[in-house]
Design a protein around this nucleic acid. Sequence first.
DNA 1: CTACCTTACGAAGGACGTAATTATT
DNA 2: AATAATTACGTCCTTCGTAAGGTAG
Lengths: 288, 288
Amino acid sequence: MDPHLLRTFAAVARLRSFSAAGDELGYTQSAVSQQIAALEQDVGAPLLRRRPVALTDAGARLLEHTGPILLRLAAARADVVRLAGPPPATVVLGATPLCGVAPARVVAVQRAMPRVTFTLRVAGRAEVATGVATGALDLGLVDGVAAPSDPLPLPDTGELDTAVLSEGPVVVALPPEHPLAARRGVRLADLADAVWLDAPEAATPPAQLRALARSEGFRGGLAYPGTDTGVLLGLIAAGAGLALLPSAALPPALRGVPVAEPRLVHRTELVHGSLTAPAAALRAALMS
Amino acid sequence: MDPHLLRTFAAVARLRSFSAAGDELGYTQSAVSQQIAALEQDVGAPLLRRRPVALTDAGARLLEHTGPILLRLAAARADVVRLAGPPPATVVLGATPLCGVAPARVVAVQRAMPRVTFTLRVAGRAEVATGVATGALDLGLVDGVAAPSDPLPLPDTGELDTAVLSEGPVVVALPPEHPLAARRGVRLADLADAVWLDAPEAATPPAQLRALARSEGFRGGLAYPGTDTGVLLGLIAAGAGLALLPSAALPPALRGVPVAEPRLVHRTELVHGSLTAPAAALRAALMS
DNA sequence: CTACCTTACGAAGGACGTAATTATT
DNA sequence: AATAATTACGTCCTTCGTAAGGTAG
């Protein structure tokens, strides 16, 4: 279970090809073959069916573990080198799309500390969380909807410190002509049969809606894998599907119907591992 | 960051000796020295101070990661081999001390399925959780106190399925002559200055009490690292310190004062990874 | 027949043990 | 001086690449 082997196993499973995985990782196809054989011998079971390349049951199970394991390993390395390395003169802040408001404060910090360069990067939830864990980001701003006492669900990367930056009401965003647009409030569970926008990186993904409403349904409509807020709002306005939005982010062109049951809030959290000095300054500014 | 190196690093840190770590792992002291050197070169920072052997800051940080990483790796291996291996004729159930009641049902299952052997093992929370993750245990019964909506805190081993088996009221267990014994109820936060029994494997550890009460204090009195329920109750009766107990487990010799704030329950959860057929049968019986 | 995985084999590098060396108490 | 980690060095084993060999579509 050498991480090296796990990494090539994951590449093979993703690309469904030994040779393509070899190309990607800088190995010959022979080396990949030998690595997979070694891994299969190690766990004592075939992991892949060849020609065409497909996962066996055991392989599928192992694949579920590889991501978190490799991420954990990368996080450990990042954590230690950050502590050992020199104090950096740059801070990278990652933010989920709907955190748009808060980063305005970064500008003030940049003015106050002209010697360090601050850069802002917008990405999906998963990418922000893993970026923070692996040190690609110094700070992460993640938004999402949850019950007030629950934390936002983040991928498993070991403990990350989180602090609540703001909380606000959630609404179901609708185009004005939608039949529900005039309602004063709506229970999430009643919308299980509606079509929801499937934009896992930009809005609440359907799977999480099911968890929030504790009911089945919430099938996704059009899928939008990107992170652009403008596109997201445009799709909602065009009737591609419903979405949960913070009422603060609702543009005039859309209607928002408050969510009644169970009490949900839109929250943005600041998440980070160990902090460099300038990153700590930014954090302080964001939380003030 | 080869797991192999992490394992010997952890051993050296624990034993504070290269040679002792070598003995334990079956290496020469030279090999251990080379492994540590390789690891330090890999992360680019010294991890240990020599003579006496002690962790540097970077080493301490890395050590925080090694446990979860190695555990995660072991869990992955266990998960895959269980899926690949032959159906076992034995089921091992691990249980935390205060789960004493539930295992009675194991007897009935054993009678119904005489071909498979069931064995029960009592251990601390951490050991049960890691045992389930690594496959040493097929099922785990963990008890603890938490808010009704929160899960019991378990070490990070990747997702484990959990199901609530039972919930009941919590009381502060006291010897009859204790000044508080006559009280009708008490707020946890008011007991922050009391002496609490420090028995992390058998009862709620002080650190978790602080989290539950959201306040400081709760200094531990006498420490009892074992898992014997009789000893635990004896220590409480002898006045070694307070402890949180499920009211169902309170013996006649002790007084129990209900906990008023915040709403807390004692819960026992059934936790498992992938299940073998006989383990699934036991699970079904325990949950019925 | 062709794309693609596997096996064979040789070379390079890595890992461990023995033994000599150095450093700390 | 004694204890314990490091360095030197030889050996063995692992891993990769090249190239030949299978095998399914």
